[in-house]
Design a protein around this nucleic acid. Structure first.
Lengths: 153, 153
DNA sequence: CGTGAAAAACTACAAGT
DNA sequence: ACTTGTAGTTTTTCACG
């Protein structure tokens, strides 16, 4: 962050919201020519500030309308169980986010499914099969108020 | 979803994980020429399956290392209060996700800050200023187990 | 750290099968 | 719906200020 000047920050802000903007367009915004913009972007990629470029899909159109927040507490908290849990979660395609938390709840998961029935099946046949789960508490999203991959910088 | 054939699905899967893949590269994977791939992508954009293209940044490098899950319950649940809350959340740049939930907790927020102190300031000067908040419960992410913008399709 | 120019690659579209 | 061909951009590199 200390390595970044205002031009870099502006480029990152733009690309976070629209990565299809060309170096030329960004150059116009910054009153520069495309070359330095292009080279800065390459540097930001190389240094790891930009991790990847992705397409964001419409979850309703691709039939993943139901979002569920699932809070999981483990029965025992030794390293082996925690690591095994983390490893198995990685392989569950329905899980879009999973965080190891401080506090009573050990993990918070965000899960996308087609409907409530498929969420039920996900819990029944996949999630609950993971060893050592103590409490499992699911709540459903009524409405997406805000949802972005962009960070405030 | 019913409108999509296997070729479309494959294109979406690829672009969800790497939107820099060119029509040419995708065409090679699919044993096609670039033109139909290109036209399918444009169609998928036009029909709204692809909402946008974005760059994903490294939150540690840009000094947004602390992720907090904040669960909010409102004091009163009338439409006006709910809408005002939603509107105000939109304008808080630190809030990356906010969902209106079914159940005891009304809203779940995911918030990114530089450190615990800046989270404290966020709550003190921004979040708690919103009218009608009853309970406010923050828990901190110890580790990002999984985190993707891609849906399982 | 920037400019400007030139080569290579890709996009975007037309016409044909 | 895909292939081929092609014009127009964009990307990418590089010599120079």
């Amino acid at each position: 962050m200390e390595n970044l000047d205002e031009t870099d920050i502006t480029i990152l802000r733009i690309l976070q919201n629209d990565s299809k903007k060309t170096a030329k367009e960004i150059a116009n915004i910054l009153n520069l020519t495309p070359s330095p913009v292009y080279e800065r972007i390459r540097r930001l990629e190389k240094q790891g500030f930009i991790k990847k470029y992705v397409a964001i899909l419409d979850k309703k159109l691709i039939d993943r309308s139901v979002t569920t927040i699932c809070q999981v507490s483990m029965r025992y908290h030794n390293e082996a169980f925690i690591e095994k849990f983390e490893e198995q979660i990685q392989n569950l395609k329905e899980v879009q986010e999973c965080y190891h938390m401080a506090g009573q709840v050990d993990f918070i998961l965000k899960i996308n499914t087609k409907d409530l029935e498929s969420y039920h099946n996900f819990v029944k046949y996949k999630l609950s099969k993971i060893e050592n789960i103590g409490v499992l508490n699911s709540t459903f999203v009524l409405k997406d108020i805000k949802h972005t991959s962009a960070f405030y910088i």
